[in-house]
Write a protein that binds this DNA or RNA. Structure first.
Lengths: 208, 208
DNA sequence: TCTATTTTGTATCGTTCAATACCGAAAGAT
DNA sequence: ATCTTTCGGTATTGAACGATACAAAATAGA
């Protein structure tokens, strides 16, 4: 009923998966239409008919990334367990995801567009908001732990969240530089070494 | 004696400084020749005569960045003091440099080229090597502290170095997302909260 | 003053970019 | 079987890209 004319001859989901991998590897600006259409196995008119534009295709690709890789990485936040376990699992899952053999290295949401140009301003904003949304999710999990009495009231949840997210983002950079899975896991463990001092600290500027 | 023909009518160093700021803000790929020449106040033939190519100009810009911003950030490694002070100063100086009013946010060496394309492969490699060289410098300072008896033999200097560098790299990402100076400094302090546990730990995988 | 040498500004090179016009092909609807 | 609708493939669009050809302009040395 919905299918009136000539049916599409390619798998839209499979094509989107290939596009996601190209964006993941090359970034938004670095991924050319020629490279995208080659990887997707279609011609550019088919791409525009099915996805609208390069920017719209990228948005769908990022959504798909969140629904696949993102679930692997952030899954610990849905499962029961302590806040410490959730963050440790987040970092260790990130280390594994960013060094998965056969996959592009690092995180699409972090590496997809870090420089603003005239053509990618909206894309940068979208990714930036996703990153900041992750920070809010992480802080929310910590505040929940405070409310549950798991962490002291003095814990600076926003600062702790920003710190652990910075570690995860730095792992994306080092993954691009070829860091081994063991090296990334060591970074994750190193970050968890701060947990006791961070959560027991006096909230504002515990270190120094 | 060396000046035979028509003298150059612009200040090469000043033009390079402007080029550095454009690359810093837009990245290597995102900085177009038109934008560079406009900021430098010259035409493209003058750019090519004075610097050779866009890639060669970028290399000189990164060298200048290292000789100016880099000195501010890594200065603590030349000054006397404990390894802990050196790393704390490194992170806090990074937080300040990445949020300096009037300057582009984040680090040119981290953000200049994180996606590899056909035209920037050598640029990516150059920046990647600079990042890894920083990791070696940081680890070297830690090993020096171990040799001096300041840190225990069990300290995993490479892992600690990778962790703190990841924090610094993540700070560049959050600086691009608009994080305040206070937020970046809080990340630096949060990372230092790991120091005691990291350096006293059993070398391999202290956390978890 | 004349020649050699280098820089300057204009105008443009060929390539690649994202995005379409066009038309024949392939399906459902009647 | 014919009409309508949508898709596929070829060819191409105008704009922006990095990089130069060229000739006038400006200096040093003769």
């Amino acid at each position: 009923m919905s299918q009136k004319g000539r049916p599409r001859s390619f798998d839209r989901d499979a094509a989107l998966r290939q596009a996601m991998r190209v964006f993941w590897k090359k970034g938004y600006d670095g991924a050319s239409l020629a490279e995208l259409t080659t990887a997707m196995g279609i011609n550019s008119p088919s791409l525009y008919a099915a996805f609208g534009s390069k920017e719209a295709l990228f948005r769908e690709a990022v959504d798909l990334y969140g629904a696949t890789e993102g679930v692997d990485i952030w899954g610990a936040f849905e499962r029961p367990g302590s806040a410490r376990e959730a963050i440790s699992d987040l970092l260790r899952a990130s280390a594994r995801a960013f060094s998965e053999p056969g996959d592009p290295r690092g995180c699409l949401i972090v590496l997809g567009a870090l420089n603003v140009s005239e053509t990618n301003a909206e894309v940068f904003r979208d990714l930036s908001e996703r990153r900041m949304s992750s920070a809010r999710d992480l802080a929310g999990r910590l505040k929940q732990a405070v409310a549950a009495g798991e962490l002291p009231e003095s814990a600076d949840c926003d600062a702790i969240s920003a710190f652990y997210l910075a570690v995860q983002q730095g792992m994306s950079v080092q993954a691009r530089d070829g860091a081994s899975r063991a090296a990334l896991l060591a970074i994750a463990d190193g970050a968890m070494a701060a947990w006791d001092a961070l959560t027991a600290g006096s909230g504002r500027n515990a270190g120094a």
